[in-house]
Write a protein that binds this DNA or RNA. Sequence first.
DNA 1: CCTACAGTACACCGATCGGTAAAGGAGTGT
DNA 2: ACACTCCTTTACCGATCGGTGTACTGTAGG
Lengths: 196, 196
Amino acid sequence: MSETKPMTAAGRRILDAAGELFYSRGITAVGVDLIAEHSGVTKRTLYNQFGSKDQLVVAYLEEREQRWQLLVRETIAAAASPIEAVLAPLEAQRTWNQNNPRGCAFINALAELPDPTHPAHVVATQEKQWLIDLFRELAAAAGCSAPDTLATQLLVLHEGALVTQQLSLDTLSVSIKLARELVLAATSTESQAASA
Amino acid sequence: MSETKPMTAAGRRILDAAGELFYSRGITAVGVDLIAEHSGVTKRTLYNQFGSKDQLVVAYLEEREQRWQLLVRETIAAAASPIEAVLAPLEAQRTWNQNNPRGCAFINALAELPDPTHPAHVVATQEKQWLIDLFRELAAAAGCSAPDTLATQLLVLHEGALVTQQLSLDTLSVSIKLARELVLAATSTESQAASA
DNA sequence: CCTACAGTACACCGATCGGTAAAGGAGTGT
DNA sequence: ACACTCCTTTACCGATCGGTGTACTGTAGG
């Protein structure tokens, strides 16, 4: 279930090289020749393994999605309480960002591939959908009164921290702190209603 | 001061066409031939006017920056109070997004042009710097106790709302509502300190 | 009238783009 | 011995990339 394809050794190297290059330099800016060269593989092998550049891009995004979602799930599992679990995706970002200084690969992919019918575009949007659904579930599990609103707020904070990462400011810490206050406020049984 | 270059009629059409194409399809994905064709101009004229594609990209971003900052300033001037003025950039986004459904052109540019030495990259980062500085000034003018923190929070909300715009959710309204609460809390003289 | 300049038309450049053809070497299982 | 898969090598394809050279036209100003 975790691995749908056996993936040959050459295929792995190709996907690794593509991952680094696509993320660090941008998808459109990286050609298949460069990927083949960096993975020590012939262009022919690349096409035998992935069929086309678009499919390689999809494989690249899907693998990133799997790794990211795995990290999030692990962080949730390690959370001390349901309330801390709601903040887990934000906390996971702290770990993730250390090796990924170029922001969100899915957002970047959406910026480069505007065509909604492009398979890579679909993968990227699905990832964001997965995240907000997760926030909603976690919020509900923590006993939040309005899971939808809180999930949207957390998604905004998550994406905002992600996209401002490239600036010098430590926006992630600010986002997590604010997110914690929101979660605590939303799960406490006291006075809460739509403010003016 | 507002116009450093006279800009011929052909130059205007080129910049207009480049603006539409770069924003809607992505910078790397759009070639100079396509821009020349869409602006009803020869490629030669394009190069006589702008010198290179990179310089055209810079001109594109700079003009967007001018238009956006003008809108923000107008919204600030129309604000009913210093507190509402802090929210003006968020409110301006509501207007702006109607004609710009593809998110932030500067963020997209950063995604496509990772090279920090690229002139377009510099312009894009400067724009974000301008915004957080503006938030800080507005927060201070509104009598906020901790302008830096509030400014960072508002920047995160701003960018988060911008980048999640492409999803179906109305994240901007949620962001503005939350931002208003933050501003009100930060400008009230009552109990406020770092929470747990 | 003449110059200066903006713009056009068109051909051209080397480089790179994504993708393919054909043939063969190396390892494995039958 | 056989076929099969994986991968290699080399060469090639049409298209497009950013960018240039050159010669011509229209038009406004001195």
